[in-house]
Amino acid sequence: MPDEKITLEILRYHPETDEEPSFQTFEVPYHEDWVVLDAINWIKEHVDGTLTYRWSCRMGVCGSCGMMVNGTPRLTCAVFLNEFHPEPIKIEPLAYFPVERDLVTVMDSFMEKLQSVKPWLIRNEDEEKPLEEGEYLQSPAELASYKQFSMCINCMLCYAACPVTGLESEFVGPAAIALGMRYNRDSRDQGREQRQEVIASHDAIWNCTFVGECSVVCPKDVDPAGAIQQAKVESTIDWYTSLLPWTKK
């Protein structure tokens, strides 16, 4: 039906005029094959150019367009209107993040947390392989052991699903810890000890109470909750091992 409509209730916040956010309602033409992002783009182009949000690839890989859709963190380029029609859809910025404007959140602390886990390949100083000698060998099984954790698109949906991030602003959080584990699990990497300083700290894995929602909302099946629990087990084993008399201190 070409003249069918769907209602979007969008949380607006303008730092220059507003003290706090409030909802605004928009009527949008309903197309069965439109995603929520299409509807938001339609509003910006045709109704209200001030509506502010991030988006880019519209194919679920750049990680820009995460928002709360009816209370759940989703990539708006991957949620179809037909999931909700004819009911209205409520759109809010990702939960637990400060809001810059409308649906744009402040990502500064997320970026710092990502960096804090040292997400790069670390080799012992004398064990770097010269480029002339080619690649590090890595079997398909070794690749498979960390591949899942390498699929994170940094969309931050997991942070918006995790109440701990709302309660403890210092919590390193699901995506960053999973990224640290991605490198720890990589057979080419030798940097686990360096990363443990952050990962095994109170602000990282021991702040996680295993709500588990981070893995539920993850659009790429990274399973950050799993990564965190595995890190807990390994850190616990580390601690017990350190008590053994023959462990080198």
């Binding site: 690649e135 890595q138 490198y183």
Partner: peptide, 11 residues
């Protein structure tokens, strides 16, 4: 590859 790119591998 040395910077960690997860290239697909042969057996």
């Amino acid at each position: 590859e040395h910077w960690g790119c997860p290239w697909s591998r042969n057996p």
